[in-house]
Structures are given as C-alpha cells and as structure tokens.
Amino acid sequence: MKILFSFFTVVFLVLLVFAGATTGNKYVLFLFGVIIPYAAFATFLLGFIYRVVQWGRSPVPFRIPTTCGQQQSFPWIKQNKIENPSTTMGVIVRMALEVFLFRSLFRNLKTELRDGPKLSYGSDKWLWLAGLAFHWSFLIILIRHYRFFIGEVPSVIHLIESLDSFLQVGVPLVYITDAVILAAVTFLFLRRVYIPQVNYISLAADYFPLFLILGIAISGVLMRYFIKVHIVGVKELAMGLISLNFMAPAKNLQEIGVIFYIHLFLISVLFAYFPFSKLMHMGGVFLSPTRNLSNNSRMVRHINPWNYPVHVHTYEEYEEDFRDKMKAAGLPVEKE
C-alpha cells in the first residue's frame, strides 16, 4: 500500500508533466521549464535554511557525545582521538569520516541467532556500500550538471567527466555514476521490500524519494543515451535560469523535448519536497550532538542556557531528620 501509493504518486507526476509538455503550449512549457524550477529551488533553499535554523534554536543543554573509543586519561593510555575526541580537531575528523565515509554505518553488523542458542555478529557492509555509492554518485552527477549552467566548462568538470567515463564504452561514453546510482537505488528499494524488519518500519515517506530519484535517474539516462533532446536549448534554459534572466530561455522551449521536462519536473519535485522530509538528514547530520561534540565535559564545564535552580533536600534538613540517630551512632553533626 505504502509502496503503491508512492509509486503511483511518481507515475502521476510523470503523466502530469508529460501531458503538459506534449501540448507544446509555450505557457505550459514556461511553467514547467521556468516557474516550477524557480519555485522549487526557492522552496528548497528557504525551507532548508528554515529547518536548520529551527534546529539551531533549540540549545544543546548537555554534552552527550556517544563515545566509541578510549577516553583521554593518562599519557600511557592511548586515547582514541577520533572516536572519542576531546578536542575540536578530533571532532572535525570524526564528523568528516561520518559525512564523507559513513563511519558509523561501516560498523554495521548482522545479528543471527543459531542453535545452541548462539548469537553471532557477522560483518554486513552492504547497506554501507549501497548508501555510499548512492550518495557519492548523486553528488558527482550533480557536479557534472554544472556544465549546463556555465558558458565555458571549467577543466575540473572535464576531469570529473573523463574519470567518470574512463571505461570508454558506448556512444556517448557511459558514465559509471549513472549505472551506480541506478543499481544503488534499486538495492535500497529492494532491501526495504525484502528485509522483513526494514519493510515493517518503512513509511510512504521512505519509498517516495526512492521512486522519485529513480525517476530522475532513469529520465536522465534515457535523455543521454537513448532519446535525444535539443541540447543547445537545454543549455540556454539552464544558463537563463541561473543568470535570473527569466525571458531568455523562453525562445527554444518547444524544441527541447518532452523527456527533458519530465527530468526537470521530477528534480523540481525533489527539491521542493526536500525540506519537508527525512531528506533533511543532509543538514541534520552536522548538528547531531552525539557526534559533533568533544568528550571533555570533565575538563571544561558545559553550559546549559536554561539551567534553573531546583528544589533540593539540604544537608541541614537531612540532619534535622536524623540528628539523634547520627549522634547515637557517633557520627559528627553540625548542630548538637
């Protein structure tokens, strides 16, 4: 049900833009080619900032890193300065490993119960591998697209493109990341369906972005390798959009090709959807207090901005309650 709902939502989105783009009506094309992308990007930008600011408004009252290694203690005990950092530099390295290499996910294990009873913990890196493959290929593809938004393509983009296509197969050359992202998203989808526990916890909000991204990747692949579009028109549109020249791209909209509008519309939906969804983990990971704090709370006092005085049971009250018993037991008291 959740899967079908998400799937058909994406199908509906494709049909919607297909119906619109095939009319060839210049106003409709202007809507899908200019207005919606702008609106989506603005939603993304403002929404993203809004969400991060909202998180930032809640303070971090306590220093609660999850320590995953030896603390700083004596010079003769080796501290794990990355997994249990006590300095900012350590935190930066820890966060870099988390953000770029998914350090925590790399620890993943598969727990199995065997006869005996015996529990075993096998290494299980598939989720890590697929997650890493998906995110990195997505990023590289995104960077590659920069060529559409700039007159003279910078050499770094050329370099990325040639690395990405170093297998030298197909015409045009096949980008490795295109294959990788399709495979990774498919894997992530299949594990959601077939692993009973993961299936049980999955919401429509977990399937929808997968289908959406799959739609984006497929339409992109179709456009590059199979269904030709008017590439000059695409570039004019892209450069017009980025230079905030609203009218410039309008002249060739009709020649670009329907598949491009599908691609662009799905991307627009992804951008607009982003701030309202779990995809915000992209911003959130940087703010996670169990990862981005050093474990130095015995060395430096961490301040809680809303720390307030509480009602305590004082020693004086305690002694009032027990003075006679304390004296009888020979315990010192403040008041005889």
Partner: peptide, 29 residues
C-alpha cells in the same frame, strides 16, 4: 522539550529508517 533539547528535535526529524539499529538492541535480539 523540543525547544530545550536539540537532540530531541533533531532525532524526531532526521531518521531515514535505514534499519541499521534494528538488530543492535538487546531487547529486540
């Protein structure tokens, strides 16, 4: 509490339900 604890607010929002935690809990196992 959402306004007092960034941890709570963030952890309400950013889970992607990847399930890596599932079989790590002693009570689930």
């Amino acid at each position: 509490r959402l306004s007092k604890y960034r941890s709570f607010k963030l952890f309400m929002d950013i889970c992607v339900r990847c399930g890596a935690c599932a079989d790590k809990c002693h009570f689930f196992i």
